[in-house]
């Protein structure tokens, strides 16, 4: 594979894992606009552990995951006190604080960044992306996935049905932190360099957009979103600012045409009915197949 192609595949794998990290919280109805903060923690944890030689070999990657999962777990408690717009802003502020701390601390190289000694081959990235994808698909198909779907749709009803809403929300933040941290650690090892400026608010915005445009209803959403937004600009050979203009126009159009994202449960049901030779009406009358309802809700701001 040429250097160009392998670079794209690497970015795709990292974006995909990162997108799943933001997706698991979004699937439970929590918008996380601080993804870059979690990714930065994973990347810098791997970089510091690798430079200082505190962990043997590739132990840096699970260690980085544990650290960012721990941060995700701890930050979930204060962040979950907030809702809607406040949660968007709290996670955003969290990412800004992380980036500020990284810039100010000499252990992390400040504004100069850090060189990461251990290089990771592309195959490991691909393996990690495949495993993450399978893991999230499994998660969403399990009782756990059902519970977070219920929370996404209605917290009060989920509570009545016996779902531990708060426990689930803390769990998705922890899993999200771990996955974002994994993507950061892989980024650090693959590109052998980390700098705080890379983990800026734009990165958080982009990854959230991958997830929301892809669709939060099924685990296919982030996959579609990351693939679409990483590969289409490359395929069209458009560079620089035009890429972002096209991205912006796509976002506005998508929100207008398919506000629930590219991949929805209805779409999955429709496709699977083609293969299973079931009467299509039964597939389309699934209780959740409500294409008229926008998916990306902000939670209730107005007291009902």
């Amino acid at each position: 594979m040429s250097g160009y192609a392998s670079g794209i595949v690497a970015i795709l794998c990292i974006n995909l894992i990162f997108a799943y990290g933001v997706y698991v919280t979004a699937a439970a109805g929590q918008l996380n606009l601080g993804g870059a903060g979690y990714q930065a923690i994973g990347a810098y944890a791997a970089a510091v552990l690798s430079t200082q030689g505190w962990t043997p070999g590739w132990g840096t990657i699970p260690a980085a995951m544990i650290i960012s999962a721990l941060v995700g777990f701890l930050i979930a408690f204060p962040v979950l006190r907030t809702r809607g717009v406040y949660m968007v802003l709290a996670t955003f502020a969290f990412a800004q604080v992380v980036s500020g701390v990284l810039l100010r601390t000499s252990l992390f190289g400040g504004a100069i960044g850090m060189v990461v000694p251990d290089y990771l081959p592309l195959s490991v990235l691909i393996l990690a992306a495949v495993l993450t994808t399978l893991f999230v698909f499994f998660l969403m198909a399990s009782r756990f996935g059902l519970a977070i779907r219920a929370i996404h749709d209605d917290e009060a009803v989920a509570t009545i049905m016996g779902v531990d809403v708060r426990g689930m929300q803390v769990t998705v933040f922890t899993i999200g932190g771990a996955l974002a941290g994994l993507s950061g650690a892989l980024y650090a090892h693959y590109f052998s360099f980390v700098e705080a400026q890379y983990f800026n608010p734009n990165l958080s915005i982009f990854v959230l957009l991958f997830v929301l445009i892809g669709g939060t209803q099924t685990a296919w959403g982030p996959l579609a979103g990351s693939l679409f937004f990483t590969l289409i600009p490359e395929a069209l050979r458009i560079g620089g600012s035009w890429r972002f203009v096209v991205f912006g126009v796509t976002i506005v159009l998508m929100m207008a045409i398919r506000p629930e994202g590219m991949i929805t449960r209805t779409l999955i049901a429709r496709i699977s009915s083609l293969f299973h030779r079931r009467p299509s009406s039964s597939a389309l009358s699934l209780p959740n197949a409500r294409p008229d309802l926008p998916d990306a809700r902000m939670g209730d701001q107005h007291a009902k």
Partner: peptide, 11 residues
């Protein structure tokens, strides 16, 4: 009630 205008405005 939802994030759609917010996402559009990011676009």
């Amino acid at each position: 009630e939802h994030a759609i205008p917010l996402v559009s405005s990011l676009g």
